Amino acid sequence: MDEVKKKELQSATFERLLQHLDQRKDVQNIDLMNLAGFCRNCLSRWYREEAEKKGISISDMDARAHVYGMPYPEWKEKYQK
């Protein structure tokens, strides 16, 4: 498999993970952290860090909005227990 295809598959897989987490708003970050060792906030931080490695500036809040599918404060108010 060439690098372009590999990156396309990784990107699609990441987006599918985000869709899955979006469908499972009942699963709290603490649940993810306890079971998997990472949470939505970790994913958003990793997203921002990888952007920075490529010279792309993205704020923590913008990265969280990408991962959460909406502004983080809105998600937190609606779904965080």
Rank of each mutant, 00 (worst) to 15 (best):
A51T: 00
K53L: 05
A65F: 00
N41A: 02
W75T: 12
L21H: 11
I58R: 00
Q28M: 11
L17W: 10
E74F: 07
R24P: 08
P71E: 04
L21D: 05
K25V: 15
W46F: 09
Q80M: 05
D62C: 03
E50A: 07
S57G: 07
Y47V: 01
L35C: 11
P71H: 03
K78D: 13
D31Y: 07
A36G: 10
W75K: 03
D2S: 11
D26C: 14
M61Y: 06
E15I: 12
D2I: 03
K78N: 15
S11V: 06
I30V: 15
W46N: 05
P73W: 14
H20S: 14
T13N: 10
S44G: 04
M70S: 09
S11I: 04
G37P: 14
L17R: 11
M61A: 09
D62Y: 01
A12N: 11
E49H: 07
K5L: 13
W46T: 03
A36E: 15
F14N: 05
N41M: 07
E74C: 10
K54N: 09
Y68R: 02
R40I: 05
D26A: 12
F38E: 11
K7E: 14
L9R: 08
E74R: 10
G69L: 01
H66Y: 05
V67F: 02
K6Y: 07
D60V: 01
E15H: 08
M61W: 03
T13G: 08
N41T: 08
P73F: 15
L21S: 09
L32Q: 05
R64M: 12
R48F: 04
L35T: 12
W46S: 02
S44E: 00
K53P: 06
P73D: 13
D26S: 14
K5V: 12
Q28R: 06
G37V: 11
M1D: 08
G69S: 08
F14I: 11
S57K: 14
L21V: 11
K54C: 14
R16D: 15
L17C: 13
P71G: 06
E8F: 09
L21I: 11
D60H: 04
C42F: 04
R48H: 06
Y68A: 04
D60I: 01
M1P: 09
R48E: 00
F14V: 13
L32D: 03
H20K: 12
F14H: 06
N34W: 11
M70L: 15
G69H: 02
E8V: 09
Y68S: 04
P71I: 01
A63T: 00
R24N: 15
A51N: 09
Y72P: 09
N29A: 08
G37H: 05
A12M: 12
K54P: 07
R16T: 07
